[in-house]
Each structure stands twice: as structure tokens, then as C-alpha cells.
Simulated assay, not measured.
Amino acid sequence: MAEGFLTTHVLDTARGIPAQGVKITLYRISGMSHRKIAEAVTNADGRTDAPILPKGTFRPGTYELVFHAGDYLRASGQAGDGVLFLDEVPIRFGMAEDTHYHVPLLLSPFGYSTYRGS
């Protein structure tokens, strides 16, 4: 059985708090194909309640997390109704080892960063 899994969280760096209520979609990428395999919403800690890709479902390959940041930025009063600088933030990455991967998003209305966490 696969022991690898994927977790994520979102921090609102402009306000210095976890970003609650951010919808996140996970896709598996194969060539030109994007297959949606999971969807979650961040809780009060800016984390998903469970791994977005739990043990037993892990497969090595290329994945993409899409953070629906625009909805969060509008709901938190950091963006108006017009065109947003950041709306959906896609992060494409590879997972080759059967282990824990953690891919967070550090978000503000005009920038973001990510890294492979632990």
C-alpha cells in the first residue's frame, strides 16, 4: 500500500493569519490531460481537514494544486469586484518518492510563494 500523501495550507501574509475558506483543487497531470482527483476548503488554521491526497491513493507523478485565491481575497476585503491580479493560483509539481509532501501557499493580494515543506 502506498504510504505517500500530500498536505497543504494557505497563509495570508498580508494580514499575518491563516487563510480560512480557500477552495483548493488537486489535479493529476498526464501529458495534456488534467484529471481532478480532490477538492477541499481550508479551515480556521488555513489547512485542509485531512490530507488532500491521503495515504493509499498516492502515485508518483505530476500534480497541480489550484488555489482559488480570488474568492478568498474578495471575501476578506482585500480585493474589489473588478479584475484581480491574482485569482486562481496554480502550482504544478512532481512527487517521485513514496513519502509525505507538503506544498503550502503564502498569499497576498499581489504576490505569492510556495516551497516544499515538511
Rank of each mutant, 00 (worst) to 15 (best):
G21C: 06
R47T: 03
P54G: 14
G31T: 07
H34P: 00
H68F: 01
D98P: 08
E39S: 14
P60H: 05
H68G: 09
D45V: 05
I52R: 02
G16S: 06
P90E: 07
D45I: 00
P54A: 11
L86E: 03
D45N: 12
V22Q: 02
M32R: 12
H68R: 12
A44W: 01
D81R: 11
Y72C: 03
I52Y: 08
P18T: 04
I37L: 12
N43R: 06
K55M: 15
E97Q: 14
G16F: 02
Q78Y: 07
T57I: 07
F85I: 15
I91A: 06
Q78C: 09
K36E: 14
A75E: 09
T99Y: 03
G31Y: 09
P60G: 09
H100M: 10
R47Q: 06
H68A: 13
D49K: 04
H100T: 08
K23Y: 01
G82Y: 12
E88K: 15
D87T: 03
G46P: 05
R35Y: 11
E88F: 07
K23F: 04
Y72S: 01
K55G: 06
P90M: 10
A40S: 15
F67E: 00
D45S: 14
Q78W: 03
G56F: 08
G82E: 13
L65P: 00
A19T: 04
G94A: 15
I52T: 02
K55F: 00
G46V: 02
I29C: 04
M32I: 12
D87Y: 10
V83M: 15
F58A: 02
T57K: 15
V22P: 00
I37K: 07
R35P: 00
V66F: 07
E64L: 06
V89R: 08
G56Y: 11
F67N: 04
G82A: 13
Y63H: 01
A19K: 01
H68Y: 06
P51R: 03
M32T: 14
G56D: 07
